[in-house]
Design a protein around this nucleic acid. Structure first.
Lengths: 215, 215
DNA sequence: TAGATTGTTAATCGATTAACAATC
DNA sequence: TAGATTGTTAATCGATTAACAATC
């Protein structure tokens, strides 16, 4: 059991942010960074940053700071960006289209290998070089192509059924965009993107902000 | 200072989920629900659910549970779903398009009133009944139309500049989809949707899951 | 060496869970 | 009344911050 297997969830969720910031520094040719520098740029305390990196193993050097390149590389390894994951997208509506066309994912090791829908008007059309297939072809497709993650961008009412289907076909990772809670056995990993939830929280915070300004 | 102004952030983030679940019950004609019922459906402890609702004010009834309709209504009020917010979308790429076409937002009190871009090939085209305008028209547009929130779906490198622009024109809410940290004065409210961050966390968790299964 | 900055320990803060008296 | 379930208090857990000795 390596130290890494106990990295707190809160830390893991910050790693992509560190990774992004360090990538920028790397591109700018900056070779060294202190927790204080990062603290200013990211709006976290330097204490938290050191605590976080300490969880990943001693990656810094006293009196010097952190070496940008090796820190970047290390975080990349922890996040598994050196691994290639295959994705399928279920639901070729607007959001499904948007995801299919997103170039950023490939750079991080996520490759979209198939897009599925049930709407005859879309099936056969091309999105980002991939032909949209009918859901009925999914089972065949997965026999010949290994997929790790299914992005679910179907309407709310179909989300559960679709998720159960892909899981029964051996997929373990669900990236859910439908506004429903999907609960599955522990060996299934689910990440939710609830757009309207986020918008509601934004609305709430705006309202609070206004109130405080009046007070 | 009402009790509500001190509702913890962690609770607020759960409210949309409660709201969604209660809406479903309402549609099914269910009039009553206990914290135990909700706990099973949502995968939270009943203790947490009672604690959460207790923060909102005593909304339940001992020995009975919660009245679905009044709880739904109350959470809606707290989240401000009775208020109408106007949104503009900056960046009419795939994601901007997807957001523009999303019908769900309007139901929750968020109305899209304008879509902007700088690409001449898109400007003038219609998305969901709105004509895409050039960024140069933004200032004029905002003089005649009040907007509360700007959704930023431009490439990473333009996100900061765009955010500063809309803030200078009086917008206080930023819904940021670009993979950058946007830090602003306290009176600006920012919600981030970092798609690739979420995907990286999903990848990490999948990897951990595999490891544990081997162990 | 002197100065800087990490890594770590301890203190604090906040969020979750457990337990149960209050009460419908 | 007896049974059920809330609301609340106290205990626990986890995450953040503060402080500083270790050390480059």
């Amino acid at each position: 059991m390596s130290a890494r297997s106990r990295i707190p969830g809160a830390v893991i969720r910050r790693l992509p942010r560190y990774y992004r910031y360090l990538s920028t520094l790397h591109q700018l040719g900056i070779v060294r960074v202190s927790s204080r520098d990062m603290s200013k740029a990211l709006g976290l305390t330097s204490s938290q940053i050191r605590q976080d990196f300490s969880n990943l193993g001693g990656l810094g050097l006293q009196g010097y700071g952190y070496d940008v390149d090796s820190l970047l590389k290390e975080i990349g390894i922890i996040l598994g960006l050196d691994t290639m994951y295959n994705l399928i997208i279920i639901g070729a509506g607007n959001l499904g289209h948007a995801l299919s066309n997103y170039q950023n994912f490939e750079k991080r090791g996520f490759r979209i290998i198939g897009v599925f829908d049930v709407d005859q008007r879309i099936i056969g059309k091309k999105v980002n070089g991939l032909t949209v297939m009918h859901m009925d072809e999914l089972s065949e497709f997965l026999k010949e192509n290994k997929a790790d993650i299914a992005a679910i961008t179907v309407p709310r009412t179909y989300a559960r059924e679709v998720a159960e289907k892909v899981i029964s076909l051996g997929i373990r990772g669900i990236w859910n965009f439908a506004p429903v809670e999907l609960e599955f056995p522990d060996d299934i990993v689910v990440e939710n993107i609830h757009l309207s939830d986020s918008l509601m929280v934004l609305g709430y915070n705006l309202k609070q902000e206004k109130k405080e300004n009046r007070a």
